[in-house]
């Protein structure tokens, strides 16, 4: 809604005061033409449901009967909802632990698998394998056979002399940790994006650098990193958004419960249970808008900070 307001402000501010040159006008017309599909999608598919969901967040809506306007009640109810606050805590831990580790791993592996090694194509594919599994139900069974009480991890520990280790997936103090491992382990997507970014580094830069006698580490910090900062930035922004919305893995591994004892109850999982399980779509929508504000705030901070470390060529 605020975005619409801003749009209006921009429009009225421009209102005939600047005399646009012909070329600029042409460029503007071209821009809108290129944006046409996106604008159509925004109007027809995205904005409507978003606006409706905001309206629903101000109502009591059980999905089956017409929504009933209740003002800010849903938002106020969140303040006294312990399970919701717990789910926020779980989500924040997840975001702040798993995103940095995952991105560091993805970047390191991408650099390692970029060039100068035999069998690169094969290794890349192998490293992407876990990410292919995606939201497969098989993950639930796999995670149990890995981290269950008689899973492969505990069998390994037993060999090392650690007996009676707990079930990692079924203990509230470790269950979230296994999901963080799962997320780090599926670093394929950011890795591929880093790889694609590394492709854009002109080889001539490296050649010039090696003529200057720069070592590999210096080449990396002086050439590679600066050139791919836009891509690093993209991955940071998107992985944070993605992690805040984490749902599928917790949903599958915990069988939809967010258990044990709400220890893997992500914000979106609680939102889903509230909306579809308990038929409180009004409350769920209010939760979604709170999440949107949180994510938007983090994204805005990211964009602000990007001026200090992201280098564009334009």
């Amino acid at each position: 809604m605020s975005a619409l307001g801003e749009l209006r402000r921009l429009r009225s501010a421009k209102g005939g005061t600047t005399v646009a040159s012909k070329a600029a006008k042409q460029e503007e017309r071209a821009a809108y033409l290129f944006l046409l599909p996106w604008l159509a999608g925004l109007v027809l598919i995205t904005a409507g449901p978003m606006a409706i969901s905001f309206y629903i967040s101000l109502t009591d809506y059980n999905l089956l009967q017409a929504p009933e306007f209740v003002g800010l009640q849903n938002y106020l109810d969140m303040l006294g909802d312990d399970r919701l606050q717990n789910s926020l805590r779980v989500t924040f831990v997840y975001v702040f632990v798993s995103v940095p580790i995952q991105l560091a791993a993805a970047l390191a592996i991408a650099v390692l698998l970029n060039r100068g090694m035999k069998g690169l194509a094969f290794y890349r594919s192998v490293y992407y394998l876990p990410s292919l599994l995606g939201g497969s139900v098989a993950i639930a069974v796999l995670w149990r056979t890995l981290f269950g009480s008689d899973g492969i991890v505990n069998r390994g520990l037993a060999v090392l002399g650690v007996e009676n280790a707990p079930s990692w997936v079924a203990d509230p103090s470790t269950a979230l940790g296994t999901l963080i491992i799962l997320n780090v382990w599926t670093f394929g997507a950011p890795m591929v994006i880093f790889l694609a970014g590394l492709r854009q580094v002109p080889a001539s830069l490296y050649e010039a650098a090696s003529v200057d006698g720069a070592g590999r580490w210096r080449q990396f910090t002086r050439i590679t990193l600066p050139v791919i900062t836009p891509i690093i930035f993209f991955n940071v922004v998107l992985q944070i958004i993605h992690a805040f919305q984490a749902f599928t893995q917790a949903f599958i591994v915990s069988g939809g419960s967010g258990g044990p004892s709400d220890s893997t109850m992500f914000f979106t999982l609680y939102l889903y249970q509230t909306g579809f399980g308990n038929f409180q779509m009004g409350y769920a929508s209010a939760m979604a808008w709170v999440l949107l504000i949180i994510i938007a705030a983090f994204t805005a901070i990211n964009f602000w900070a990007s001026r200090f470390w992201v280098f564009y060529d334009d």
Binding site: T46, F247, F276, S285, L292, I295
Partner: peptide, 11 residues
């Protein structure tokens, strides 16, 4: 960017 910040379950 805002359009990808809202969870699918409410839209």
């Amino acid at each position: 960017l805002l359009t990808i910040m809202l969870p699918i379950h409410v839209v």
